[in-house]
């Protein structure tokens, strides 16, 4: 049975409605908490004033509370410190390894890839439990260094994957041409290879940073009071009491996510342009 024009238009309308609902499902949770974070009252449901768009029902109260709270400020400082140090480690080691993996000469490639990707595949609870015992024995639990190493390990797969993907599009003749003109390996890397794979490296770094910035399981197992990060602080807040202050932090994190997404998409455009 072929659909009549009317029937097919109806079917298309129904299909678009279904898609619309899925997008609502994807985005509604994020959209709902943004206005609630401006609630003047200590509730996280819409007050009648808010529904009437009464200016007095909205306030920056919770943003002020978070900004003025030393606990949240320290959590932000910890998240930034641990995230950036872990990112530097993961990006450096991950980029080198990706260059090795991209080479056809690499021995035991599949096995090596399995090991290097494993931090992304192993369920986090298992990783965190193992790290807790091991790092405790070394005196690294409840230290910033311990968390940096742990997060670096968790972030490396993202760097390896993105840089390997960029390298697969890389034209090896360029390196050979550079070598043919007398450039050493280091000069070839710095002047020819790096500029081309740079967007891949940067987006891998952003993934690694985002992974650390959002990680809470390892932090739950390993961090002491002095290493509490933003997700750890949110976890405590959600378990005990969701105040609109948590929603203010959440709104900030959504804005951060949009910025990250925009940057990664822009970089992806550069990779495509370079091909």
């Amino acid at each position: 049975m072929t659909l009549s024009p009317l029937g097919s238009r109806l079917a298309r309308g129904a299909y678009l409605a279904v898609c619309g609902l899925v997008f609502v499902f994807l985005l509604a949770p994020l959209l709902a908490i943004v206005p609630l974070s401006f609630n003047a009252e200590p509730y996280f449901t819409f007050t009648e004033g808010m529904l009437r768009l009464d200016a007095e029902a909205f306030s920056l109260r919770w943003y002020r509370e978070v900004a003025g709270d030393p606990v949240w400020r320290r959590a932000l400082a910890n998240s930034l410190l641990i995230g950036s140090a872990a990112t530097v480690l993961a990006t450096g080691l991950g980029t080198l390894a990706a260059m090795g993996l991209a080479s056809r000469a690499m021995p035991g490639r599949r096995l090596a890839m399995g090991l290097l990707i494993s931090p992304m595949v192993v369920p986090l609870v298992i990783s965190a439990a193992g790290m807790f015992f091991f790092y405790s024995a070394l005196g690294l639990a409840q230290t910033h260094l311990g968390l940096i190493l742990a997060h670096a390990a968790l972030g490396t797969p993202f760097v390896v994957i993105t840089v390997t993907a960029t390298l697969s599009a890389f034209d090896r003749n360029l390196s050979r041409a550079a070598a043919g003109m007398g450039a050493g390996p280091w000069l070839t890397f710095r002047r020819v290879e790096l500029p081309i794979i740079a967007p891949g490296v940067v987006s891998g770094a952003l993934f690694a940073f985002a992974a650390s910035f959002d990680e809470v399981v390892v932090v739950l197992f390993m961090a002491g009071e002095a290493q509490r990060t933003i997700p750890r602080q949110m976890w405590a807040g959600v378990r005990e009491q969701i105040s609109p202050a948590i929603l203010a932090v959440a709104t900030f994190l959504i804005a951060f996510a949009v910025a990250l997404l925009w940057t990664v998409e822009w970089l992806r455009g550069r990779v495509r342009a370079a091909r």
Partner: peptide, 15 residues
């Protein structure tokens, strides 16, 4: 699709 993907897991759970 990607905005929720990049948004913190805890934020999405809280929502």
């Amino acid at each position: 699709v990607l905005v929720p993907f990049w948004t913190s897991l805890l934020v999405r759970t809280t929502s």
